[in-house]
Design a protein around this nucleic acid. Structure first.
Length: 749
DNA sequence: GTAGGGTTAG
């Protein structure tokens, strides 16, 4: 039984949740399962059954005892049967000892299982295999297998299928290879079960080539072999077409009849495939064969439609389902986050027990629009159902509190977690970053790397913190970059993207370019990052060259890429190119422009003096023009002297953000420009009356070296710096130098 | 009778 941590218990008392009536009188993990069906006597307690047999004069043999153990739910019954078996001498049977070990291992008492194992005088291979099941690290599994071999135990296929089924992190591929070679040495290379397990083990560790090799070399294959291969290929984004091909060969050439697992595996490939057409075809054939009633198939179909933004189709599948399991309900909660709570209630009414993933979905449904109170209620549900201490759930709760803007809540969960994994640390780092606590984010990162190995998510958060922090932490960023290279994460698209962004923002475009060049896989994310980097630096030619390269390497641009390209066109005044790109968005890439794209066009046309066209664009913006688009138009009106249009834009802006100084200043300057000092002064008076203040903008510079930071901050008309006089002197001489250079350039031209 | 292979949700 999990213990509720003190602070969370306090929350439970404080916040009575009216959302869900849980009636926790029946804790989830204690709900009994049907146990009598295995037993020939009508009884709910296996030990009673044994006693009843004894009373009836039936001899209780090892078989009856192992049956009873198989029926046992809860540690108490098992222990009683164990005591019974010891007192009656049944323990001398290896079968009884084996089932006792199995029982203890499954109820989480592996030590008891080990103790029984050490007491067996002549353990058979089943005894060894049973113990093998109980280990919880790849290392232990491998060591025990080798120990079996050294002890002269005749290893059998079960030994290998058991050892290989150990699903662990992606990193222990060595473990699978060693088991593979051991299996070959033991003469099981052509065993069907061992082969199938190898395919799965390789697939789970993303070694699809090895999985394929095993499959190709197998002498005999059954449906499971094909399913394992298809399902393995479906997990890899690069092999989706291959998964579909294998499925077609299986049906067409090998003549096997696909079952519900074959269908769900091939549909899983369609979930991640950009093209849903084959998925629809499969849906049709599934319905023809009648497998669509299978809960597994329906679940994966739901997922497919949902991932392709066809929420209605996904919902329809759920509604048509005759049988729904926890995965169906959890998927539905993810599809309809705004109904997550009522779906959760309906699920319980339906008698389906939630699991940790259900709570992850429930917590994820809390959006920044919700109040803290609502978030706390969801948290209470987790505490009441005793799921709040599950690592997955705790991690999600941290993210939820961060999303709601209270890092105190996140810290509470974090501090009470016994076991923190890298995901936990990542949730804290990104939580601090999202809430603007960049220093804390960096501190959390520093602690994280002492306890866990950082991954791509850690770096994505920490690098974006470094990028967003007011202070320049470039040295810190470079140190992170070194670690990223050491861990080989510089090839990850997201990490590369944040690094490119960081260097670009800090003015080091060459380093951005180098990071991009070193990223092995050029994905949408890294292409977009480097294009945006050059766009920020006004390198129009580079932007266009990179964009062409990206398109010709068959990477489809998205909204952000095109926004960067448009921005570059805007900076350089390339109206025709910009217009062309904007038109291509809809016609070629089938992307509906965002308000930002319209705003960029307004800016571009306005700067080029095409004010009428700019205003036309402004009016086309869905849901009305935003602040930045109006600012652009206003700025353009000032440059090109369209007073009437400028006034319209300024009035709109002042209505939308009456306390922002920008529009007032621009409008006042425009009046001044036309010599209308009276109105200019009037606008300034409005500002005063409404209490609008012009915000002071600061610039900073770091003159420090690698070891120390040396920050200097400036604003306009700022004389507070001790070296102010000298600084102004240098600035002035730089200014005249620029004038000279510009003049020379003009003369040359 | 005791151990083992393919399966969907975050």
């Amino acid at each position: 039984m999990r213990v509720q941590p003190p602070q969370q218990r306090a929350l439970l008392v404080r916040c009575q949740s009216p959302l869900i009536n849980l009636k926790p009188q029946q804790p989830l993990e204690e709900i009994p399962q049907r146990i009598s069906y295995l037993w020939p006597l009508p009884t709910s307690h296996p030990l009673d059954a044994i006693r009843a047999r004894l009373r009836a004069g039936v001899v209780v043999d090892p078989i009856a005892t192992t049956w009873a153990l198989k029926c046992s739910i809860g540690a108490k019954t098992g222990t009683q049967i164990h005591a019974f078996a010891t007192s009656t001498g049944l323990c001398s049977s290896v079968a009884v000892s084996n089932s006792l070990m199995s029982f203890y291992s499954k109820s989480g008492c592996f030590d008891s299982a080990l103790k029984i194992f050490s007491e067996i005088t002549e353990p058979n291979v089943i005894s060894w295999n049973t113990i093998l099941c109980g280990f919880c690290s790849a290392d232990e599994v491998l060591r025990f297998t080798l120990k079996m071999r050294r002890a002269g135990v005749p290893l059998d296929p079960v030994t290998f299928t058991t050892a290989l089924s150990f699903s662990a992190s992606l990193r222990d591929i060595v473990f699978v290879r060693q088991l593979h070679s051991l299996a070959v040495k033991s003469g099981f290379e052509s065993d069907l079960f061992v082969g199938n397990s190898l395919i799965t083990a390789y697939s789970r560790r993303a070694c699809y080539g090895d999985a394929r090799l095993v499959f190709d070399e197998m002498e005999e294959r059954d449906l499971v072999s094909w399913n394992a291969l298809i399902s393995g290929l479906s997990q890899d984004g690069n092999c989706l077409a291959e998964a579909i091909k294998v499925f077609i060969i299986m049906v067409g050439c090998a003549g096997l009849r696909p079952d519900h697992i074959s269908f769900s595996s091939v549909i899983a490939a369609c979930v991640h495939d950009a093209d849903i057409r084959f998925g629809r075809q499969i849906h049709g054939s599934v319905a023809k064969v009648g497998h669509n009633v299978h809960v597994l198939v329906s679940n994966v179909l739901m997922s497919m439609y949902y991932k392709h933004d066809e929420v209605d189709n996904a919902t329809k599948i759920f509604q048509d389902m005759k049988e729904r399991n926890v995965i169906s309900w959890t998927s539905m909660m993810s599809i309809h986050p705004s109904n997550a709570v009522s779906l959760f209630n309906n699920m319980r009414v339906d008698g389906v027990q939630p699991n940790d993933v259900t709570f992850v979905a429930l917590i994820y449904a809390v959006s920044p629009d919700h109040s803290l109170k609502e978030g706390e209620m969801i948290h209470c549900i987790c505490i009441k159902t005793r799921f709040s201490t599950e690592v997955n759930v705790s991690n999600s709760l941290i993210t939820m509190y961060a999303k709601l803007g209270t890092m105190e809540g996140a810290r509470m969960i974090f501090q009470e977690m016994e076991y923190k994994e890298i995901v936990t640390w990542n949730a804290m780092v990104s939580g601090y970053a999202q809430n603007g606590h960049f220093e804390e984010a960096l501190q959390a990162y520093s602690s994280a790397i002492q306890y866990s190995e950082p991954n791509q998510y850690t770096f994505a958060s920490v690098i974006s913190s470094i990028t967003s922090a007011e202070t320049i932490y470039l040295t810190y960023g470079q140190r992170c970059h070194c670690r990223i290279i050491k861990l080989g994460l510089n090839t990850n698209e997201y990490v590369a993207g944040t690094l490119i962004h960081m260097y670009a923002k800090r003015g080091n475009i060459d380093e951005s370019q180098m990071t991009f060049d070193e990223a092995v896989s050029r994905s949408l994310v890294s292409w977009t990052a480097i294009i945006s980097a050059h766009a920020k630096h006004g390198n129009f030619e580079n932007v266009m060259t990179l964009f062409q390269e990206m398109v010709s390497s068959n990477v489809q641009p998205d909204h952000i890429t095109l926004l960067a390209v448009l921005t570059a066109c805007c900076c350089r005044g390339m109206v025709d190119v910009g217009q062309e790109i904007f038109d291509m968005m809809l016609t070629q890439y089938r992307l509906e422009p965002w308000p930002e794209h319209y705003a960029c066009m307004v800016d571009m046309l306005g700067k080029a003096g095409k004010l009428m066209e700019a205003e036309e664009f402004l009016q086309k913006i869905p849901n009305g023009p935003g602040i930045s688009a109006l600012h652009s138009l206003l700025g353009a009106c000032r440059i090109h002297g369209d007073f009437e249009m400028g006034k319209r834009a300024a009035e709109c802006l002042m209505k939308m953000e009456p306390m922002e100084s920008g529009a007032y200043i621009l409008l006042s300057n425009m009046y001044a420009h036309t010599g209308d000092w009276e109105n200019s002064a009037m606008v300034r008076r409005w500002m005063k009356k409404r209490g609008v203040k012009k915000e002071v903008a600061f610039s900073w510079v770091d003159t420090g070296n690698e070891d120390a930071l040396n920050m200097h901050k400036f604003s306009s008309d700022d004389n507070t710096h001790p070296l102010s006089e000298q600084i102004y002197h240098v600035a002035e001489s730089l200014g005249s130098e620029i004038v000279i250079l510009e003049t020379e350039k003009l003369l040359e031209a």
